[in-house]
């Protein structure tokens, strides 16, 4: 694999040519695919497909596993560019800007109905969301910054609502747990204000992502008793939580704490 004729730079900048799609290596031709941080560009002039970098960072080339298909003509490699750690000095940039299918995210429950729970996505599993969703832009302080004239105050991309500026999602009742899916009662699974760990099923429609908690490690991770007025509760089993101070016991679909 190391006999590729293409020599990759260790660092790249946007627009930098990384490699052609096909490289005539021995004994097999190598085919490169564009991974994260790169883009496939077609040059009309000499009818050539090339991969260019789209961000500042380190270039990595890794083999792609093609299951089942014995591609005997080509070696498949994926080229990607990952951001430097060094760049993270001022803002806590994450390379993840948008939730994608399959990502595990943290979200806050904002509305419950019989069929679904509406949530806002506030972070990835162990990375915060981009900063512009926080108080700095959003501000739910004592002096509410988005009340009153809030209706006419909008970012160009986003209508101002009670939800702030985060992406929204839906957990449908049949996606709450894996077993006995038809008998899920949403009020026994989530309460508004709970922090839920969930996985993204699909990008959904224009407004909502579709999320699921049908896994042992997914579900409520932070909850307060008495609809948020009480104290923090901790999971006892997968469907009960208790507040150690008051002894209150409430029903939730809990995430496995281990």
């Amino acid at each position: 694999m190391s006999d590729t004729k293409v020599k990759f730079p260790s660092r790249s900048i946007p627009g930098q040519l990384l490699c052609p799609v096909y490289a005539p290596t021995e004994p097999k031709v190598t085919k490169y695919t564009a991974g994260p941080g790169t883009k496939l560009i077609h040059y009309d002039a000499n009818n050539l497909d090339v991969i260019t970098s789209t961000r500042i960072g380190h270039v990595t080339v890794s083999p792609v596993d093609v299951e089942g298909k014995d591609d005997n003509d080509m070696i498949l490699m994926q080229v990607s560019v990952t951001s430097d750690e060094k760049n993270d000095k001022t803002n806590s940039h994450s390379s993840k800007l948008l939730p994608k299918e399959g990502d595990v995210v943290l979200c806050r429950v904002i509305r419950i109905s019989l069929q679904r729970a509406n949530v806002e996505i506030i972070g990835f599993q162990n990375e915060p969301m981009p900063i512009d969703g926080g108080v700095g832009t959003n501000g739910h302080s004592v002096v509410g910054v988005n009340g009153g004239s809030g209706g006419s105050t909008f970012s160009m991309s986003q209508s101002s609502s009670d939800l702030g500026e985060t992406f929204r999602g839906i957990i449908r009742s049949q996606d709450v747990r894996a077993t006995d899916r038809d008998r899920v009662k949403m009020v026994d699974a989530f309460k508004p204000g709970d922090i839920v760990k969930a996985q993204i099923l699909s990008l959904g429609d224009g407004v909502n992502y579709y999320l699921t908690t049908a896994r042992n490690d997914l579900g409520v991770v932070f909850a307060k008793s008495d609809n948020g007025a009480g104290s923090l509760m901790y999971a006892m089993d997968w469907q009960t939580m208790t507040a150690p101070v008051t002894g209150a016991v409430e029903k939730r679909k809990c995430a496995k704490p281990f």
Partner: peptide, 19 residues
């Protein structure tokens, strides 16, 4: 630069909008 953040559009947009 703010974003990519959610849009006010109700329909699914496969690409981001730039403002």
């Amino acid at each position: 630069v703010y974003g990519p953040r959610s849009t006010r559009s109700m329909s699914f947009e496969p690409r981001a909008t730039l403002n």
